[in-house]
Computed example of a mutant assay.
Amino acid sequence: MADRNGTATLGCNAGYTVFSGGGATIRFRAPYSLKRYIRVKEWDEGYLVVDAEYAHSPAPVEEYIDLVPILEDLYMDPAGYLEDIREVEVAHA
């Protein structure tokens, strides 16, 4: 859930990417070798550019996540879900 200042979180758990913000938490399948998200480089109304750590790569890998089609597949209104989110941080377990 986005906090009072509009911050959401991105993380991974048990093979899933977990995004919490906009009043709900969504989970979707992550790449099989994803170990963790390192940092969020860019947030643009549902589009994320992140650095991720993978089991097969010694260096961070830049990844792109578009939440809009994921939200649509979940029958959620992307505009309503994303409207209060101003930034996204990596969730630390």
Rank of each mutant, 00 (worst) to 15 (best):
Y54D: 04
T25Q: 07
T9I: 07
D44T: 01
V88R: 07
A93D: 10
Y16L: 10
T7G: 01
H56D: 14
G22M: 02
S20W: 13
C12E: 12
G11K: 03
R36M: 12
V50P: 13
P58G: 14
A8I: 02
L67E: 11
H56L: 15
Y32C: 06
S57G: 13
E53D: 14
Y32S: 12
G15A: 05
A93I: 09
K35H: 12
W43I: 14
G80N: 02
V18C: 15
C12S: 12
T25F: 10
R27T: 15
Y47Q: 14
G22W: 10
D77S: 08
L48K: 01
V18R: 09
P58N: 05
E89V: 03
Y75K: 04
A59D: 12
V61D: 06
L10K: 01
S20G: 14
V40C: 14
G11M: 01
V49S: 11
L74K: 01
P31Y: 02
D3C: 11
Y37A: 04
G46S: 06
A91K: 06
Y81E: 00
Y37M: 08
A14G: 07
E45Q: 04
N13F: 14
H56S: 15
R86N: 03
V49A: 07
I85S: 05
A52Q: 15
L74W: 02
D84M: 09
M76E: 06
A91L: 10
R39N: 13
A24V: 09
Y64H: 14
R39F: 11
E42L: 09
M76A: 10
N5E: 12
F28E: 02
G15V: 04
V50S: 04
Y81Q: 00
V50T: 15
G22A: 03
E63A: 08
Y64R: 09
Y81A: 00
R4E: 11
P69N: 03
F19T: 03
E63H: 03
H92E: 04
Y16G: 03
F28A: 01
G21L: 02
R86H: 02
N5R: 13
V61L: 08
G15C: 09
V68N: 09
L71T: 05
Y54S: 03
R27S: 08
V49K: 03
E62Y: 05
I65S: 10
A55Q: 05
E89C: 02
N13D: 03
G46L: 00
P78W: 01
G80A: 07
G6S: 02
A2V: 11
Y47M: 10
R86M: 07
M76W: 04
L74G: 08
I85T: 01
